[in-house]
């Protein structure tokens, strides 16, 4: 009987080990593939010319493979979207965790989280059909499909991530700590800004970075509303072509294992490095500045 159970135990362990290693192995394969298909471009252009080259004309003769406009587009769209999504997400989180009545919170929080379930193509569609003409009229710009539109849509997309994780962080600040602040004569808002927020800063920062990492990797929205021009943007109303949009738009027409094809994969590698960096930073912050819990004795 005991031996039988031990036997089962051992086989269960092996079973789970195999499943886990399979998924890790597949992810590893994808990464190897990404690098294998991206690196050959560096036989044609140097790494610095690739990353800092100002011209992306992959189909002209001779082609130019400088992805700096794409990187600049990705960064500017992401930063601008963060400027929109951080105040919205964090303030909503504070409202839900600290100010809203219990019932409001129970209803609104799942709704915010549900926003994350809106397919990005729907958000892209919304940006194209509603926001774009509006921007065009309002600001009298050449096209409503531009950096600002993309940032706005990506901002909305990251709000659920930022809000949900921040709310968890804010509401996990121990009650004892808030009471200590109240007992010293602090008002509710003083308590929020001087005790609750500093204590939940690591969770909030993590949420922001995860939100931004979602925004920089998002493809469909930028493909639909960013405007698609591979130029370094000079104004927030310039059309841009972030890295994911470029890859998605051009992959179908790039000749298999041609230079253009390799260049797109190399762009993918650069994009991967960006998201990897975001995730490492998020991990590092979550690890280094652990949420302050109860004081220990």
């Amino acid at each position: 009987m005991a031996i039988n159970r031990q036997f089962k135990e051992r086989w269960m362990r092996r079973f789970f080990f195999v499943i886990a290693s399979t998924s890790i192995f597949i992810l590893l394969l994808i990464m190897i593939f990404l690098f294998a298909e991206g690196l050959p471009i560096f036989k044609k252009v140097s790494l610095t010319d690739f990353i800092f080259g100002k011209y992306w004309y992959p189909t002209s003769e001779p082609p130019e493979f400088g992805i700096f406009p794409l990187i600049a587009a990705s960064i500017s769209v992401t930063v601008l979207s963060a400027v929109i999504s951080i105040p919205l997400g964090v303030m909503t989180a504070i409202y839900l965790a600290e100010i809203a009545a219990f019932k409001v919170r129970e209803i609104v929080k799942p709704m915010v989280e549900l926003l994350a379930a809106i397919p990005s193509v729907v958000i892209g569609f919304f940006g194209m059909v509603i926001v774009s003409p509006f921007l065009q009229d309002m600001f009298d710009v050449a096209t409503g499909l531009n950096l600002f539109n993309a940032a706005l849509m990506l901002g909305f997309m990251s709000v659920p991530t930022i809000c949900s994780i921040s709310e968890d962080a804010v509401s996990s600040v121990p009650r004892a700590m808030k009471e200590a602040s109240f007992a010293l004569g602090a008002t509710h808002f003083e308590t929020i800004f001087k005790v609750v927020l500093p204590a939940s800063l690591s969770g909030i920062t993590t949420s922001i970075i995860l939100g931004m990492s979602r925004a920089i990797g998002e493809t469909m929205v930028v493909l639909m509303v960013a405007g698609g021009a591979a130029m370094i943007p000079l104004s927030i109303f310039d059309p841009v072509r972030p890295m994911p949009a470029s890859i998605a738009a051009e992959m179908a027409e790039a000749p298999f294992r041609g230079d253009h094809y390799y260049a797109l994969f190399a762009t993918g590698v650069v994009l991967f490095c960006f998201t990897l960096m975001f995730n490492i930073i998020a991990d590092h912050i979550a690890y280094k500045y652990k949420q302050t819990g109860d004081s220990t004795l």
Binding site: E179, A180, L184, V195, P198, A199, S295
Partner: peptide
């Protein structure tokens, strides 16, 4: 002023 059962210093 109030002192609580469990020490609750701010971080």
């Amino acid at each position: 002023g109030m002192v609580f059962q469990k020490p609750n210093p701010f971080p």
